[in-house]
Structures are given as structure tokens and as C-alpha cells.
């Protein structure tokens, strides 16, 4: 099932093309990981795909419709996001925050219906954080908080979830746990999960598909195929670091 095909140029400032002529598609029920060095436009790509900033050229088509033709409300029911930064919120419970994920569906006052509350409960249990439901956001660890934001995106019931470096501030076990969670969610809920990430070894082990963004080019493939055609080695290898393509291992000389 084809979800999204894009071919466009990203910008920052006055028509500064960060990356041009990208043609790719994302599939539902899969976890795709966007990797690449800093400053190559990973975040810009994500922001453009969320319709946060205009594309410079080309087309973005989601579920057979141009992204531009979606209204704000339709977009909110199409794409859910999770960001790197943790929102600074005081005195709000986990359940309340996940409930805000229902905002595109609730009425004028934002009151949750019984059905909305049921969806919030299901989202919490999918992520495995029901016990945290009554906790205040400011008392959570970074890892827990990121799970709450993922639950928020689930409650939004969007077929697509974009995550901008969701594991950046987490400790190693939390990183693994979060990525495992996202992988499981893409399977169980048949959602399109697309995230940028710098934890290459984890990404290679868990992603269905890798988008490797380098200056001027985007290589797409399964971890194994990108390893086989040498793209990953080109990206990873430098003095003191080598890449073993047969078992996707990054080796550091010491």
C-alpha cells in the first residue's frame, strides 16, 4: 500500500535548497528511520512533511491527495508528531496530556466524550504506561515523558506518526525500549512510523527501511541492502571507524 510519494526541494531562508529532488515513499505498517549527519536537512524534511513549512517545489502526496489540500483539522487527523524537546508543562496529568491528543476530534470546549476517554486509555495501554496515568508530567523521567508523547500521538489516531529524534535525550535502555515500542506499534496498529535518529546501530537492527540522507543524495533501502551497496560504509567509515556489512556492525578501533 503506497502512502506517500514525495519529490520536492526543502528550504531554509530565501530558497536555500537544503536537499533537492527527493523521490521516495513511506509504507504503512513499517518503521522507517531517517539517518544522516547533522545539518543535512533531516528536521527540515520532517517539518515539510508535517506541512509546518512550505515545500520549495515538487509534490507531496498522502493517501492519494496533495498535502497542501488538507485543512488544518484534516492534517491533525492525518499526521501525529513527537518532538525531541520536552514540553515544559506543570500540573498536568499524563491522562490529561494524552487527552489533548483528542483535540482534533473534540468540540469547542475540548470536553472528552466517553469514547475519547476509552481511546486515551487504549493509547496508554498500547504504550504500556497505564500506571502513570495519574502522575503529573513534571514528575516523569525523560523516557517516560517521551512515551507519554507517543501515547498522545496514538490518541490522535493518525495513520502516520512522525518523530524528530525521539530518543535524543534518553539513556541507552530507554532508547532501545522506545524504538522497540515504535516498531511494535507500526506492526500492531498498521501505522506509518517515520523517525529521524542518530543511534545508527539501533536503527540498523530495528528499522524496516532506512533513509540515508547525505549532502545531495538520499539512499533508501532495507538495512541489509544499504549495507550491501556500500552506502552505509560510505556514511559511517572514517579514520578509526569501520563498518562490517555482513552483520551490520560498526567497529571502532581503539
Amino acid at each position: 500500500m503506497e502512502h506517500l510519494s514525495i519529490g520536492y526541494a526543502v528550504h531554509g531562508g530565501r530558497d536555500r535548497v537544503v536537499a533537492g529532488d527527493i523521490c521516495a515513499s513511506l509504507m504503512s505498517g513499517e518503521m522507517t528511520v531517517l539517518i544522516g549527519p547533522n545539518g543535512m536537512g533531516k528536521s527540515t524534511l520532517l517539518r515539510t512533511l508535517c506541512a509546518f513549512q512550505p515545500r520549495l517545489g515538487g509534490r507531496i502526496v498522502v493517501q492519494g491527495r496533495e498535502l497542501d489540500t488538507y485543512t488544518e483539522k484534516e492534517l491533525a487527523q492525518l499526521i501525529g508528531i513527537v518532538l525531541t524537546s520536552k514540553p515544559d508543562i506543570q500540573n498536568m496529568t499524563v491522562t490529561e496530556l494524552v487527552g489533548l491528543g483528542r483535540a482534533p476530534y473534540t468540540g469547542f470546549w475540548g470536553r472528552l466524550s466517553a469514547q475519547d476517554r476509552q481511546i486515551v486509555r487504549e493509547s496508554l495501554s498500547l504504550v504500556g504506561i497505564e500506571p502513570l496515568g495519574g502522575r503529573l508530567i513534571q514528575t516523569l523521567s525523560d523516557g517516560e515523558r517521551q512515551k507519554v508523547m507517543i501515547a498522545k500521538a496514538l490518541a490522535q489516531q493518525t495513520p502516520i506518526i512522525f518523530l524528530d529524534e525521539p530518543t535524543a535525550f534518553l539513556d541507552y535502555p530507554s532508547k532501545v525500549e522506545t524504538l522497540q515500542l515504535l516498531y511494535r506499534l507500526s506492526r500492531e496498529t498498521d501505522r506509518t512510523v517515520f523517525l529521524s535518529n542518530h543511534d545508527l546501530d539501533l536503527a540498523l537492527q530495528m528499522a524496516d527501511r532506512i533513509w540515508l540522507m547525505e549532502s545531495g543524495r538520499l539512499s533508501i533501502g532495507t538495512p541489509a541492502s544499504l549495507a550491501a551497496d556500500g552506502s552505509l560504509a560510505r556514511f559511517v567509515e572514517r579514520d578509526g571507524i569501520s563498518f562490517r556489512a555482513d552483520d551490520l556492525r560498526i567497529l571502532v578501533r581503539h
Binding site: F52, Q77, L83, A103, W109
Partner: peptide, 23 residues
């Protein structure tokens, strides 16, 4: 008082609020 939902969404920060359909 009519702005309560808007203000609740603004608490999440600009990007999250926008993603939840807020202009």
C-alpha cells in the same frame, strides 16, 4: 472563556499545538 481549548493546546508548545490542528 471561549478560548479555553486554544489555551490548553498552547500549553504544549507551538509545534505540538499546531500538529493538533490549531491555527
Amino acid at each position: 472563556m471561549l478560548l479555553v481549548k486554544t489555551m490548553n493546546l498552547l500549553l504544549l508548545g507551538d509545534d505540538y499545538a499546531r500538529n493538533l490542528g490549531l491555527n
